[in-house]
Design a protein around this nucleic acid. Sequence first.
RNA 1: GGGCCCGUGGCCUAGCAUGGAUCAGGGCGUCAGCCUGCGGAGCUGAAGAUCAUGGGUUCAAGUCCCAUCGGGCCCGCCA
Length: 634
Amino acid sequence: MSFREFREDVKRSVELAIREAGLPLIDFEPSEPPRPEFGELSVNVAFTIANKLGLNPLEVAKAIGNELKVPKGSLISSFEVCRPGYINFKVRYPDLNYRSLSESILKEDYGSLNIGRGKRVCVEHTSVNPNKALHVGHIRNVILGDSIHRILKFTEHDVQVLNYIDDSGLQIADIVVGFKYVGFPLEPPKGEKFDHYCGDEVYVKMNELYKIQPELIMKQKEVLKEIDEGRLDIAKFAQEITRKVVREQLETCWRVGAYYDCLNFESHIIETGLWEKLFNQMRDKGMIQLETEGKLVRCWVIKMEGEEDEKVIKRSDGTLTYIAKDIPYAAWKTGLVEDPFQYNVFVKQPNGSELWSTVSGKGRDLHPDFGNADLAITVIDVRQSRLQKIISYILSLLKGEKIEKKYVHLGYEVVSLSRRTADELGIMIEEKDFIHMSGRKGIYINADDVLDALHKKAYEETKKRNPKESEDWLHNTAEKVAVSALRFDLIKQDLDKIIVFDLRESLNLEGETGPYIQYAHARASSIIRKADIEPEITADNASTLDHPTELNLVKLISKFDLYVEEATKNLSPKTLARYAYSLATSFNAFYEKNPVLQEKDEKKRMARITLVQAFKNVVRITFDLLGMETPERI
RNA sequence: GGGCCCGUGGCCUAGCAUGGAUCAGGGCGUCAGCCUGCGGAGCUGAAGAUCAUGGGUUCAAGUCCCAUCGGGCCCGCCA
């Protein structure tokens, strides 16, 4: 928080000086200068003012500088008017050291903000069709959604995490046909997870079979209709299968540290009459029409303003399309309709929390409130952008006002496989550097397999460094390292960049990676363990921190809440991932140059110990916000 | 055909919503170094960039606007 105070000190005193100098007050933000000699903050408002008045920027900066007074008790140590027209400020380090370290040294909630107080948010993520296992691409979705939920919670939003389970689509019919009519055994081969088996074996093979035996497509349609209508036998069987797959998928999600509050089964949207209600509303408002001629005859369609084609929401055979069911769901999320669902606990999660789900028939009387959020965030890849826009458009029509601020599509680019990894998996790929994943075509790498490979590598590395530790401890630690490697790898870059996943490259645990940061944390932990003393920062010993690497680390720590704010406002976990990395780099630079335990000067030693402790605490909190762990030793 | 996104050293990437300071940050890879001090998953250094191209706006453009080229995606009675 202390760097924020410094920034406010700078801003306020400059504003005052501008007024004193009789210049027009223009809104500005102090920013960080490119070089350390220029201080810690810089103001370029002189350029804007000069431009407006047709004056020389340097003259304007000087005029402001002449009126500038450093307020007593502020964190400003000095300022200087520089060449083309900047006003540069230096921070009073001894004070920043003291304030920053005493705030950050132990507090669990250091850096938390209350910007979300009273705001109810639901985050929908994962939402993988329950006919297959999660591949790495899905993990990008899971960790994005999970990290955002953690960050929003940290900033005091009232967050609920939803996972939408499409248990009534064609892809479910595919595996049901496989089990019921093609004769795939219900039991997976020994040692294979059921979700892997359904996806890798049944689903992929069914899609090949349709080409050879077109009569199966008739079966597929039949089954779909039965599932939709909820007719006893097949529908019940489909339910059993999808729930079984969901349980297995959740294992993978939990493995990477993602937890949920509620599963929304698509079938319940029909069952509760929620779809019917929305359908009637849309029809009465004239938003949808029944086509009476043309190729879409007997379909109910919606036409978007400025769009050529209409979108089918109810097929001529009476079944519903995917988007149809998303409309009531979105309406429920944003509180446009009363909650029609019944709930029960689906499973107790490894973190101790209860995961609820919508249920058929009667659920529990007492349950948490779901839906009805001030802000609904849907995490889904960019290929869904158009559809999400349509949904948002429909919601706006239903509500009678713009809803863009309430219904947010958080889109991200897909994860593809590198040519090398595709080759190694035996996937044919021609002329391209990468290949997009496809569940149906069997082009993907399962998340569990990636995690297993990472685990194996991390295990070897950890064992080298901790040869005497138990197998249990080693595997436990290796898993934490593996998860941070994968999560960090998938969260560190911008959402609009395609990630070309290369298994061999991902196994490199050096450089800009999660394990690099965990390693720095483990080094810090080792120092604290050996110091075996209660860290204590005082105004006196804080002033002994004066090496550039010490000050740099203090400065970064003092800016934590500014990064939290940015990450929250932009829904951008990447910001915090980069922050964590810069903390670690900065710590390693400090570590290289400054002995802690060997330091002779007692005050200095204590100050450094508190710096190490503060670093440790802030990395831990940051990693926590990104769903990664920081073991004491790795 | 209509729409969206990307294009920064051999490869990957930050910076772009709020345009500013004659080193455009990192990482991987390559090469050369660093431990009788707290963990070498580390640190230091070197080589390597017409910020895709061409215009425009501006005192100032990697950042804003337009066009072009290259790559990806979306536009289904699939989800």
